[in-house]
């Protein structure tokens, strides 16, 4: 008799992975896909309707909308991913520290999270972006301050309940180190719980970043960020419907993709069955 080990079978990827991959590709390669210089003005051809040279028309200073939409992808999408990656890493780390630490450390971290959650979502980002204005860093810091607590709470709740389970006790009794227990027993379920939240979070971050851009408090023109583009185009809404629709549609499609993927992940956290 021998132990039969099955080869580790690759899990079938959930179908929602493809639109997500397309979004990621766009965020990475967007600027290279732009057919024209996104910042080249042409005051002779302002608010032009779509044509062969300008597939989506031009804006109020004659810039090519299609190029600006592509060039804006890293700002709108990439920044959102960066934001959530940072916030979820910080949140999960603090949540795990809270779950493993003593009563004082736990109370300190969790009360801090409560305090941050007591601010309405956009307010902190508004203040940071508004005061320190214009750059990527104030935006990142402001959004992160608002975002990390939900990840910390989720991580703390899952880790605390896992640490109480029999298999953690069994591992301690068998003499496994705390680090191994954290890695093998606690982290996988924590990450499984955080993944759907983070996917939905990227969608929310896209909305927040574009909202700040729209308010004129996010990334500053002429940076081709989708929200800032909408802000610039708003006075010309009556003349340039297609031009306005382009960044709007990009935001909608990106957030919709992430919302659907997040929901699919939440419904089936294993990502497509085990057999």
């Amino acid at each position: 008799m021998s132990l039969v080990f099955e080869p580790v079978r690759a899990r079938s990827l959930p179908t929602s992975i493809w639109p997500l991959a397309a979004l990621a590709g766009l965020a990475l390669t967007g600027p290279f896909l732009a057919p024209l210089d996104p910042n080249a003005q042409d005051l002779m051809r302002v608010m032009e309707a779509p044509s062969i040279t300008h597939l989506l028309g031009t804006d109020h200073v004659g810039r090519d909308i299609l190029s600006r939409v592509f060039a804006g992808a890293p700002h709108s999408l990439g920044l959102a991913v960066l934001c959530v990656t940072l916030a979820s890493s910080v949140g999960v780390a603090l949540g795990l520290i809270a779950a493993n630490g003593g009563a004082f450390v736990r109370a300190l971290i969790m009360r801090l999270a409560d305090l941050m959650l007591a601010f309405p979502g956009l307010l902190l980002a508004l203040l940071f972006a508004g005061f320190l204005g214009g750059g990527i860093w104030p935006l990142l810091i402001g959004l992160n301050l608002a975002l990390w607590p939900q990840y910390a709470r989720m991580a703390e709740a899952v880790a605390t309940s896992v640490l109480r389970e029999g298999h953690v006790e069994a591992a301690r009794l068998a003499g496994f180190a705390e680090r191994t227990i954290l890695k093998r027993h606690v982290l996988p379920p924590v990450l499984r719980a955080v993944m759907p939240l983070a996917t939905l979070g990227v969608g929310q971050a896209i909305m927040s970043i574009s909202a700040l851009g729209f308010l004129g408090l996010g990334l500053k023109p002429p940076t081709p960020e989708w929200g800032a583009m909408i802000n610039e185009l708003l006075p010309f809404l009556a003349e340039g419907f297609v031009q306005m629709a382009a960044p709007c549609a990009m935001i909608f499609v990106s957030v919709l993709t992430l919302t659907l993927a997040g929901r699919a992940l939440a419904a089936d956290p294993t990502g497509g069955g085990h057999d």
Binding site: V255, L256, L260
Partner: peptide, 22 residues
């Protein structure tokens, strides 16, 4: 609900303005 949740508030507003005002 999914559609509306994927639309930032200003997009909803711009849509309504385009339709009902313009």
């Amino acid at each position: 609900a999914v559609t509306l949740a994927s639309l930032p508030t200003f997009l909803v507003g711009i849509g309504l303005i385009t339709l009902f005002a313009l």
